[in-house]
Design a protein around this nucleic acid. Structure first.
Lengths: 356, 356
DNA sequence: GCGGTTTGCTAACACGAGTTAGCAATGGAA
DNA sequence: TTCCATTGCTAACTCGTGTTAGCAAACCGC
């Protein structure tokens, strides 16, 4: 349990001052006119001692921590929604390439000023906030203060820097797809926690598509779930109690849709013949359910990566070119809505095998 | 973009020394005999300025960062295996309760001493390593140095502190279950990256169960995938080329099994009639696949929580009572192996609805 | 040999906090 | 009055780093 060596230890070993060590290892040896021979001696000593500059010391004097925070609304969301995986991967990849670390935080609700606390704790230089509640006081104050924050989703503030997907379009496209298949009684499973911008927009997209097609919004066909598959199953049980039955479901996430599909099948109905299903995210399991899930990608990997890149730009001082990026979305039609779909799965599998 | 206030700012405002501020806010006012009136003044000033102690300054003098590292072998794993979600949740919950933060890192392979670099960077006080490669030089050195490391899995070192599941038993139990159903030609889909302790043990469990039943291990029935569903699909295509066909599959993770099941179904075979499937993890989707997936839980949530608790104990200086915790596992039989299974899903769903 | 430049290095300060030793003032006892 | 104890507070050190001003020696030109 030896303590980590410091720059002083290196200095002692190389028989120079501690300043010299900082200068050489910081790449400013030339400016300070240190002789090649001395530089070599310092580098050698550092390597022998396995010296690694202490982040706290460095962060103190530099005023930067080289770490960003990823704030996730709810710990329960972390536990269950696979949508977070590619998001996290995108963020980790982009930050790692730039030498940043990622601190994952969940916000405890209703406690003072959690966003400010995290931002000014001196642990991070900036943060990415995943789909926060719309109108969160603590977050809004932070954004207005001009600190480096990238919102995934939106708070509707002119000061904010955000990565959004067109959630209205998502709701509209998914619903319109179901309508185009001749479905009339289209149910919607939204999130129980309202107040999340993305979720509300998807609902509005659904409403607009229905209205455009001249279809009524039936309150009995609009229900709620949280982000878990279990809650999707439960919500579907409610919908299966409606008469007449819905002939299609638009669920607000793949996880919820998977729960709902299981409920439909357990009740003895066929997908898509009796009930067609469409949802949002394209998590990896969506292709492997049978029938495979028709879904609108929310491009979590690309979004995460983009958010991290924008944040890094922001932290470097410059306002990014566009303060609001809109990630493209795309409807992926699969067997849960169209009977005779055929996937590119076989092709993908062949490619995988080829690279083995 | 106002700068965060420091203890000096608070001191100035309260018209006291900076020391007094540290003493009061650090809870040592009594020891230093500061008058109640002064204490009040300091607390008021701190609140008015919205003062938050800087983590770097504090960590420097205290020698602790109040942050732990979670090291995940591979970024690609993060992107796709839902098994990580409950694990992450367990770790976040346990650490948050104790005032710790979590830094998520992936290790870049083959680069010097990545574990040592992270540990001695001054960013973290200890780390949890998720299923590292067996025999990793950098990690083993770190463990032997006695620093606070909890391994999920094992490196087989006497110095290590680990949270393990009985992977041999997992492999054995899953395979034995398939055998008990009368299956004889049981295939195994392992991980392509060998060298991971857990993975190798599962394979040995499989071998032992087969041996005990007097069944041969056929090389053509042992194949590999990585952690993705895609690779499970591809691996299954290989197995479907075997003659005669396997009549059961033991896959090393649910994600891989899901890919494999899709391939089986796409080829026109019925699960479990033609081919039974069992795997490991019990990710949330396992219950919602149809047929639902027979699996041995690896209890990722409990494991993560336990690992975090052990690490915190370790960081506080004391050696934990047991340096090697074994998380219990359990076979969950569902429709992918037994035709007429019935789940408690309906009951669960009713409970969810009841709490709404 | 003197003034000026260049070379090679270090002392000293700063960052923001926690902690200890000890100063000054007051109070009480002898 | 003198001595000691207590009260209320702060100066000064520490942690590990980055950076700047500047010291001493060597070198150059005349």
């Amino acid at each position: 349990m030896t303590k980590a060596p410091t720059a002083s230890d290196v200095a002692r070993r190389a028989e120079v001052s501690r300043s010299a060590v900082s200068l050489v290892l910081g790449g400013n040896a030339k400016k300070a006119r240190l002789s090649d021979e001395t530089q070599e001696r310092i580098r050698k000593a550092a390597k022998e001692l396995n010296y690694r500059p202490n982040a706290a010391g460095r962060s103190l004097v530099r005023g930067r921590t080289e770490t960003i925070g990823l704030v996730i609304r709810d710990l329960d969301l972390i536990g269950v929604d696979p949508f977070l995986l590619p998001l996290l991967k995108g963020i980790l990849e982009a930050t790692r390439d730039q030498g940043y670390r990622v601190l994952v935080e969940s916000i405890r609700e209703g406690s003072g000023d959690p966003f400010g606390d995290l931002m000014d704790s001196g642990r991070i230089d900036g943060m990415i906030v995943e789909n926060p509640n719309y109108g969160d006081k603590s977050l809004r104050r932070l954004i207005k203060s001009g600190r480096p924050v990238v919102v995934m989703g939106s708070q509707g503030l002119k000061e904010e820097v955000s990565v959004r997907i067109d959630d209205f379009k998502i709701g509209f496209v998914a619903t319109e797809h179901l309508i185009s298949l001749g479905r009339r009684r289209i149910a919607h499973i939204a999130y129980a926690e309202s107040g999340i911008y993305a979720v509300d927009l998807r609902f509005r997209g659904y409403v607009e598509a229905m209205r455009k097609a001249g279809l009524p919004i039936e309150p009995a066909l609009v229900t709620h779930a949280n982000f878990s598959m279990e809650s999707g199953y439960a919500a579907m049980l409610d919908l299966l109690g409606a008469t007449p039955l819905p002939d299609a479901i638009f669920a607000t996430s793949d996880a919820v849709a998977m729960g709902a599909m299981a409920a439909v099948q357990d009740a003895g109905y066929l997908i898509p013949r009796d009930i067609a299903v469409a949802s949002v995210d394209d998590i990896s399991a969506a292709r492997f359910f049978r029938p495979a899930l028709t879904t609108v990608t929310s491009e979590p990997y690309a979004s995460g990566k983009l958010a991290a890149e924008m944040l890094i730009e922001l932290m470097s001082g410059q306002k990014p070119g566009n303060t609001s990026a809109l990630v493209d979305t795309r409807l992926i039609v699969r067997g849960s809505s169209v009977e005779d779909y055929s996937d590119d799965l076989l092709q993908t599998a062949r490619e995988i095998r080829a690279t083995k």
